[in-house]
Simulated assay, not measured.
Amino acid sequence: MNSRVLFLLSMFRNLPLVPISISALIVLVWLLPVDQWLEYHRALIGQGQLWRLLTANLAHIDGSHLLFNLAGLWLMAWWFGSALSQLKWLVVTLACGLAVTGGLFLFYPDPLWYRGFSGVLYGLFAAGSVFMISTHRWLALAGLALVVIKLVGDASGWPVVGSEPMHDFRVVHQAHHLGFIMGALVAVLWSRVSGQFGSGFLRTES
């Protein structure tokens, strides 16, 4: 095969395809008038509209909410590099997305509606940090500790830095807790099954 073609295929393979796809879906949902059909709505989920358990993570309240979550998504992609391979990105995103909305539905009856990707972002951070432990142990552990402190502060009502809402709506902190726990759990189980703790930087294999 032509060397130029091989080079292009190599570049394509190393693109962060899952973050790109997630970003495209989030923007598409924002551009199309379908948010009300995709958001977490407790009563409608109880009536059988189960797709909302996954699609709620793609819906956003306003433009600043959308941009904030997209920035967080690409910060995760930059910070963790290949500690989150393509397959890990996909599995962690889906698992955390379902954990956030499923957990809200099962354990937290007060939030009647929810939109946003922030719960999944907390899960991606937890998973990426666990996968990084073998290569950047203290950096990963420090990051996990700081986020745990923030989550405990949010749950307790402490004035933790970054806990004040940046938007004109109430932040559903329970979503962050659920996403973080699921991300850490997926990463620990994955590492135990694969026989390694962490995957190094930028790899596309699982």
Score class of each variant (00 low, 15 high):
V193M: 15
G153Y: 06
A59W: 04
F7R: 00
G81V: 06
M1E: 02
D35R: 15
G102R: 09
L189F: 12
C96W: 00
M182G: 03
W89A: 06
G63C: 11
F131E: 07
G162A: 02
L70I: 03
S10G: 06
H177P: 02
W78T: 08
L90W: 06
P159V: 03
W138E: 13
V27P: 08
H65T: 01
L189N: 06
A126W: 00
V152R: 14
V152D: 13
H176L: 09
N57P: 07
L106H: 12
A142Q: 06
G102F: 07
P109F: 12
V148E: 04
S156G: 15
T93C: 09
P16I: 00
V148G: 03
V130A: 10
W37L: 14
I133M: 13
L84C: 08
G195W: 10
R52F: 14
G48M: 11
W158R: 13
L54K: 04
N69H: 10
I45C: 09
L104T: 01
I20R: 03
A77W: 08
F7N: 00
A126H: 02
W158A: 14
G103Y: 04
M1L: 01
A187Y: 10
G81H: 04
P33T: 05
I133Y: 05
S23M: 10
V160E: 09
F117K: 04
V147C: 05
S85W: 03
V120E: 03
V188E: 11
F80D: 02
I133W: 02
Y122N: 15
R137N: 01
H177M: 09
I149M: 14
P111C: 11
F201H: 14
L70D: 02
V193E: 10
A95Q: 10
S199V: 11
G46S: 15
L189G: 06
T135C: 13
L141N: 06
L124H: 10
R42G: 10
L32Q: 11
F7I: 00
G46I: 13
L104V: 03
S163K: 08
L28S: 13
H60Y: 07
H173S: 15
G102K: 08
A140N: 03
